[in-house]
Each structure stands twice: as C-alpha cells, then as structure tokens.
Computed example of a mutant assay.
Amino acid sequence: MRKRNSGLLLALPALAGFLVFYFVPFLITGWYSVSFGIGKREFVGMANFQDLFENEMFLLAVKNTLRYMIVTVPVTLFGAIVLSILLQNTVRGVRFFQLSFLYPMILPIASVVLGVQFLWGESGIWNKVMELLGGEAKDWLNSSAAFWVLCILYCWRFTGYYVLIYFARLQMIPKEYYEYAMLFGAGKFQSFRHITWPMLIPTFLFTIVLSVMNAFKCYREAFLLGGNYPDDSIYLLQHFMNNNFQNLNYQKISAAAVSIVAALLLAAGVVYVLYLIMRRGKKYG
C-alpha cells in the first residue's frame, strides 16, 4: 500500500500538469465546438460541425494532410528500415553514418528552407538548368510541385532519425539467432522474415506514431515555403487552424480540433482491435 501511494505521489505532478494544460482546455474546446457567441455562449449542437464539413478550405486541408501522410510516412519508415539493415552490415564507417543521419535534425529549419528555395525557387538552380536545356523556368514553390518538394524535405529530415532507432533495435537482436537459422539453411530473406521483422514490429509501431506526429508538425516548413496562403497543394490543417485563429473564429477552430482528436482516437481504436484479433489468431492458430 505504501509503494502504491508513493507511486501516485510521484506521478501527481505529471497528472496535474496533464489535467491543467491538456484535459481541462480540451473540455473548454469541446464546449466551444457546440456553442456560439461572445461572453455568454449559446448551445447550438452540431451546427458548428455542419458548417465545418461544408467549408471547402477545411476539406482541402484534410485532403492535403492525409495525402501528405500517406506519401511520407510509408516512404520514410520503409526507407529507414532498408538503410538500417545496410548500416548493420557495414563494417567500416558506422560511427560516421550514425552522426551524419542526425545532421538534418540539427539544422535550423529556416536555413533548410533557404536551401530549398535556392534549389527550387523561381531563380533557383533547377530553373537555371532547365533554361540551359531549352526548357521554361517555373515557380515550383507556388505550383502543385510544392507538395512533392515538401514531401522530399520531410523524408530528408526524418529518415535518418528513424534509421538510428531501427539500428539500435537491430543491435539488440542476438547474433546466435541468425547463426542458428543458417545452420538449418535459412537465407537472408528467410532470416529477415522470421527473425528480424518480428523483432522490429514493436519498434515499427512506435515509429509509426512518431512519424504521424512529425507529419502534423510540418507547418513550419509549409509556412516558410508559401506563407499563410500557399499553393492549394500544401494548404494543410495547420494553415486552416492558424488562419481561423487570426480571424478569431474560435468555434470553427474548436470544431476542427474535436474532429481531429475524434478521428485519431477512432483510428487508434481500429488499430488496437486489429492488433488484438491478430494476437488472438496467432495464439489459437
């Protein structure tokens, strides 16, 4: 009983911080999402949500954000797995590669965006090359190509970070497992399928969460590339939230925030149910 009480006391500051800075504000946001008015608010039910889902800019922001995550998350994670396996088989220069993978995370985002503008800006290197080859210069950052520039920027920044996570997990797999598999004639693909991948699954699930979180943090890059109102291809949820906050449209922001949290909780619940089904199938299969 004493250990249980001491554990609760140790966790109390974190719990208090969560209640004060996250849970209570979210309850206030929930009330704002179903009410309208300044000062004395009036309950309006789902009217704010109806207006939200009829808003073209919100639908555009949702579409672009989902598209961005569908492209960047799988490419980054699977690329990181391949690079971490190659790094594990590298005999020399491992320390150099480990440090170099962190450089994109260390560089200030403003300087990175300046480099992007130097490459793909209206007067950037890529347009100079196009003109030399007889092509026409294009404002890449104010066209649909800006979406792919933003995807490249995300993959470049975060792939190395996930490589180090996977590499650390690979180093924890006992070498005896692979030696034992080789004695029974298992090749590299079979070893990966039956040893490496099952060991990586918990880490892979963890990096999926990290990758989705980092994808939601891409507003800085998109803002520095295109401002508050960039090309439609990179108009993301953060743009929608920030622009409506500047317009003091709190009910629309609140409805959007509650909708996003509900969607994330639903997705997490579906993934958890599928995990339980797979786990039960392995247990009784």
Rank of each mutant, 00 (worst) to 15 (best):
G124Q: 11
E179W: 10
K128G: 12
C218V: 11
G121W: 11
R169C: 05
Y180I: 04
K138H: 13
E131A: 11
T196Q: 03
Y161D: 10
F216K: 12
L200D: 02
K217P: 00
Q171T: 12
T159R: 08
I195T: 05
A146E: 13
K175D: 15
G124F: 09
C155V: 14
I152E: 03
Y177P: 12
S123P: 00
G121F: 08
R157H: 01
Q171R: 15
E221C: 03
M172S: 09
A146T: 11
G185L: 03
L210K: 08
L200F: 08
V209S: 11
Y180S: 13
G160H: 12
Y178D: 05
L141Y: 00
P174C: 03
F204C: 10
F216T: 13
F223G: 11
A145N: 09
F167L: 14
L141S: 03
A222M: 04
M199P: 00
L210D: 09
F192T: 00
Y180G: 08
G134I: 04
R220D: 13
I201Q: 10
L153S: 13
K217L: 08
K217W: 04
A181E: 07
C218Q: 13
Y154F: 15
M213Y: 12
Y161H: 08
R169W: 03
G160T: 11
F147C: 02
A222Q: 07
C155E: 10
F118K: 12
Q117K: 10
L153P: 00
F167V: 00
I173C: 01
W120P: 00
G185T: 07
F216V: 10
S143E: 04
W120A: 04
C155H: 08
Q190D: 08
A168T: 14
L141N: 01
Q190Y: 09
Q117S: 00
E176K: 10
G185F: 04
T159I: 12
L210Y: 05
